[in-house]
Amino acid sequence: MKHRLFWPVATLVMLILINTIARSQFASITVRDGRLYGALIDILRQSAPLMLVSLGMTIVIATRGIDLSVGAVMAVSGAVALTIIDGSTDPNNVGVVMLAVVVALVISLLLGVWNGFLVSLLGIQPIIATLVLMLAGRGVALLITEGFITTVNSTPFEFISTGYLLLPFAFFIWVAAAAVVGLTERRSALGVLTEAVGINPEASRLAGVRSRGIIWSAYAASAVLAGIAGIIYASNIKAADANAAGQFIELYAILAVVLGGTSLMGGKFSLAGTVVGVLIIQTLESTMLFLGVPSAESPVFFAVVVVVVVVIQSPRLHRVARDFVRSARARRAAEPSLDAEVVG
């Protein structure tokens, strides 16, 4: 009960159990042509874009920031990659696709560096600094695709989201990303320094932590991860849709981070919690699809989840609960010797 991952994992297990009871085929996994299929496998595949964005968001939130521009970065990244592939003579060439992906990620990195510049160097509030790119980024993506939805037929590019190596290729992408982020944060001092910056920027600066560079790199990492997410999204629909790509994803990513037990106040963060948080969201989506709720209506449900989670996290409620427990205990202790009790 005390472990910070207890509640997220318990929620996920509960969700999977309820689904399995409601429909037996939910947990079943079939093997066809050396590939695994099933509802659970679908969840692992579909969670890739949100997972990548949420991992980046966790790091940014840990530094006491927030990155609203991830959806716009996704749109730009997808638009860049597809425009390059579309403009090439041979869209099926693996080299062309690799080049497109690399260029898209470099541009995403530049966008992240821009966010980091505004936040760490100019000292603008993160919400506002990233709002600028959130507004302008989609405009840029629309300019790149010239206002159209660019579509391509490129087998190597489609492989990114729909390919299989026993398990979906997109699953391996997010596992690799989670491993890389997890190892750099937790197997070096970077994670601790990030938490220090988030808990008290001024104190950590006085203690010699280069908070500016850490904050800057958090935004850069977030944008690169969002860039990868944008490529997976574009690969999945075989098109660059500058308006729909990554819409509302910043909201879902923030929800995933909070569900995973990372406080929005910055500081201590849990990447494993975020992974579980994303899987919870994706399982909920799958559940609602099964229940026949139109996906457009699902925000109502997520609103309720957000409200419940933030109320549970709220310090005031904790205080009230603590006081209640304490007074209950005091009353029980006081009962046998009620006469001897000295008020005051």
Binding site: L251, I254, E297, P299, V300, F302, A303, V304, V306, V310
Partner: peptide, 13 residues
Amino acid sequence: FIASLAGLFLARG
């Protein structure tokens, strides 16, 4: 920011 985010989700849904 978060509270109004919940409001955004709720009203949109």
